[in-house]
């Protein structure tokens, strides 16, 4: 486009555009790609066609490069692939998008975004490791081989990482997800109820903020005099502050915090049926 609008005036706009086109046929291919191009010359079927063929060839070459199975993923292959795609990228930007012929400001704006996006992406990848698709700490050793034609999506239980236990609670063995045959109560415990975030059950959950529930059914029998185990567990879910477990109860350094569980359970929206299932499940933990 023209960079001298002062002389153009508003009315001359359309003439200006057609004038641009008039000189297409005069531009030699070599001059079009490499030399100085007279203002307004963009190219026609010939130039664009050649460029398209060039891009198609690059794509074909890329495809050929990855054919040898042994080399796939190695840097011998990655380097030329990256270089070729960069060439394609800039050919499209410079010639198809006419950026080579545009006002320098447009270059600056686009390149600013492009370079920044590139730097951000590279920085992020580097902050997480290196450009190698090797599993990092968490995934390493946990990855399972893939068996074809699995229809069901895997169900990930929310994973609770043991927090440094401020209350002196003991974190038991690592979490195992709810088994397929888990009771509804156990599923609520591990899932929607979010109980496992704070409570531990040996071999199942490792939460460390609240009391350990591994033997809750036994413990609950004698915790509040005159209250049955079932009533105590139900009350502890529905109205956690009615009785707050003390340091002496659990043999630890500090009382549990009043109000802590109310704060986390009040928004859960558990139904009465859910609570029944939970109580039923917890009563099995002797």
């Amino acid at each position: 486009m023209s960079s001298n609008p002062g002389q153009e005036g508003a009315v001359a706009h359309h003439e200006h555009e057609s004038r641009e086109h008039a000189s297409h046929e005069d531009a030699g291919i070599g001059r079009f790609f490499f030399g100085h191009v007279p203002e307004g010359v963009h190219g026609g079927l010939k130039q664009y066609g050649l460029l398209a063929i060039f891009l198609a060839i690059i794509t074909f070459v890329e495809f050929v490069i990855i054919l040898p199975e042994d080399l796939r993923g190695s840097s011998i292959v990655i380097a030329p692939l990256v270089i070729l795609s960069v060439i394609k990228f800039f050919c499209v930007v410079a010639f198809f998008m006419h950026l080579k012929f545009e006002h320098g400001l447009l270059w600056q704006i686009f390149v600013a975004g492009l370079v920044l996006g590139l730097i951000v992406a590279i920085a992020l990848v580097l902050l997480f490791g290196v450009f190698r698709p090797t599993p990092r700490a968490f995934s390493e050793g946990r990855q399972q081989p893939f068996v074809h034609h699995v229809e069901e999506a895997p169900h990930y239980e929310p994973l609770v990482v043991p927090t440094p236990a401020p209350l002196g609670a003991i974190a038991p063995a690592p979490a195992a997800g709810a088994a397929a045959g888990a009771s509804p109560g156990q599923q609520i415990f591990m899932g929607a109820g979010g109980c496992s975030a704070c409570h531990a059950i040996e071999g199942l959950a490792v939460g460390a903020l609240g009391p350990d529930l591994t033997h809750i059914a036994t413990v609950a029998e004698s915790r509040v005099p005159g209250q049955s185990a079932e009533d105590y567990i139900r009350e502890s879910i529905v109205e956690p502050d009615a009785y707050t477990v003390t340091a002496a109860d659990e043999g630890i350094d500090q009382d549990f915090q009043q109000g802590l569980m109310v704060a986390t359970t009040s928004s859960l929206g558990l139904t009465d049926e859910d609570v029944d299932e939970l109580v039923e499940y917890l009563m099995t933990l002797r």
Partner: peptide
């Protein structure tokens, strides 16, 4: 989706990076 799902290998730190970027 699993972007920040720790159990699936997702990394909550990615959120922090994107948010503070």
């Amino acid at each position: 989706a699993n972007f920040f799902n720790v159990a699936a290998g997702g990394d909550p730190i990615l959120w922090q990076h994107l948010f503070w970027l």
